[in-house]
Design a protein around this nucleic acid. Structure first.
Lengths: 342, 342
DNA sequence: TTGAAAGCGATACCAC
DNA sequence: GTGGTATCGCTTTCAA
């Protein structure tokens, strides 16, 4: 039960091996007659080209390397939509996805590029500064697209949600509905320590926007993840309820628990204080109660990243297009957790 | 900036190309002196072997194909630990993971095998009966390991949690603590329709175990996913509270919402009725209140699958070991949602 | 419009 | 212990 090769197809179709190749790639005009015979032979043998041989000869693997944040206590919330969308976009162009985990660090990138395991790499979960993988990513022959915007992109293409704009949307909405104090529920220490790029972008923009409205902004940060953290956070928020308090929660997986914990303490979001979360529309709409949210748009971000990637692969290496920062606009959707303007 | 080849390494080390190969593979004794010189050259050139060439020559890709349930409204709850563990195990043996999504159906398997994209395939998310991918998986040269146990495994190796045992653990515990009626909260229609293998295994075993204890067992199934379903389910459960009611919830992502919804209705699990959920220990322990659970052990299951996979790859194809069904034992952990025996 | 043949970069057999 | 070289299965140039 040995696999067939293009030679077998050629023999069966009564043509040369190169003709089989050209029929498959379409890189050369083929008479209708020959094409039919070849396709027929391919079909009868259920022939599939050997990926290794093809990669060796063409210098193209038709594989996209994806570096995802697994391993050591990393936040994988909301990771699946990214992977899923990227896999789908890859498949639509007859590419496959090779998964590499963040905990390999720059070694993973070196391997992907050095062994020619893929044609391009998508890198997620970037630190805002001094990500050891960035210099490596920038020095490698294989093109790399970043999902995220580090302070120094090292000349690489970046795609991400506009977290600055997300923060502004939330602050502006709370200002417009007459709130007089804002609390930003910070990420737990472990996330802060990893200095993720988007965290920083969100905080900074929130501070600037709040200042612009003349609103005091306080950061309340839980010690760690989990329900306990939500309870602790709710307690601290409860003590601050007075006047019109607006709470912004950028860590998507704490939004729901905190809202619950508040309600359990008799502090009802939308009545006693306001909450705006940064989470996907699906999660916000399905929550009980539905949460006013700024969307994360993981699918749009992934899609745009893949567009950039294929654009890069299509154009000749001699005409490198200037790297750019491609930001996806978030959207604010009003649901039930913000008090209406008085 | 062209990549170096083993030829370059050979030249720099003053040896033949084959010697370089043998130094890397260790398939032949090499004098300490030569080995040092070669390793040194490899190092200085930061040489990495070309994956395509290696695969072509050796018939080994060092890649594991992983077919995961993405796409069309599929349940991806708890998928990440599987992917993560599999990726880790692969990496530990210098293998990479190629991701293929379920929505490709058998085409994905044909491609992985036909193009020789990987050395072995792990298939998840199996239907209990008539999974169109199984005949294909069984007919392909590439070895396939199933995570899940379909009714007819088509001669393939299966690894999974022992869902039958899981159901028995739950029923036995409720029987032992003096419950007189059991309710099994069913999966939503969409899941049932997909006829997932583990769902059926759990239900059947639960029925048998309940009958063995002489306990009535009723199945209450929500119409669909989401919070709304949890509320609806809680309502239906609330009407059944009387005597000592034991509730078993095998769909891990509904356990928490249903417990919440019950509590919100003044029906407290652990006081007014009992709840045992099928979910990971981490999720159960972190829940509020901590939920008595039967564990899912995704990491153990994945680990065992990878062990089987590498065992298969190591042994010569002529000595095929009899396929077996490898079941991982779940464990019941008592927390706060089961009423103590009267 | 098609075919012959030279690589692509490893592995592993056959010699020595 | 080491080197030479055929080979893996495809792509692509050169020729016709």
């Amino acid at each position: 039960m040995v696999a067939f090769t293009s030679k077998d197809v050629a023999r069966l179709a009564g043509v040369s091996q190169s003709t089989v190749s050209y029929v498959m790639s379409g890189k050369r005009p083929i008479s209708e007659e020959t094409r039919r015979r070849v396709l027929d032979a391919i079909d009868r043998l259920t022939y599939e080209p050997n990926a290794g041989a093809r990669a060796l000869a063409s210098q193209r693997t038709n594989v996209v390397g994806l570096v995802v944040p697994f391993g050591r206590g990393v936040d994988t919330t909301g990771l699946l939509p990214f992977i899923e969308t990227i896999a789908g976009a890859a498949r639509a162009r007859d590419h496959d996805v090779l998964l590499v985990t963040t905990d390999e660090g720059s070694a993973g990138i070196r391997r992907l590029a050095g062994r020619s395991l893929c044609d391009a790499i998508i890198l997620m979960d970037l630190h805002a500064t001094d990500d050891e993988r960035l210099p490596v990513a920038a020095s490698v022959r294989t093109p790399v697209i970043l999902i995220g915007v580090p302070e120094d992109p090292h000349g690489l293409h970046c795609v991400d949600l506009d977290f600055g704009q997300a923060a502004r949307l939330a602050v502006d909405e709370l200002a417009a509905t007459g709130h007089d104090r804002l609390v930003l529920v910070g990420h737990p220490g472990e996330i802060i320590e990893r200095d993720l790029n988007y965290v920083r972008r969100f905080y900074d923009a929130a501070r600037v926007a709040a200042a612009g409205h003349g609103l005091p902004l306080e950061v309340v940060a839980p010690v760690e993840w989990g329900r306990a953290a939500a309870g602790e956070t709710a307690d601290r928020l409860a003590t601050r309820v007075a006047g019109r308090l607006g709470v912004i929660i950028p860590a998507s997986n704490t939004v729901q628990p905190v809202v619950h914990a508040l309600t359990a303490r008799g502090v009802v979001p939308g009545r006693d204080l306001s909450v705006i979360g940064l989470l996907t529309d699906a999660a916000a709409a399905e929550a009980e109660p539905p949460i006013t949210n700024v969307s994360l748009e993981p699918r749009d971000v992934s899609r745009r990243a893949m567009e950039t990637l294929f654009r890069l692969l299509e154009q000749p290496a001699e005409a490198p297009r200037p790297p750019r920062v491609d930001l996806v606009a978030p959207q604010l959707t009003r649901r039930q957790t913000v008090m209406p303007a008085p």
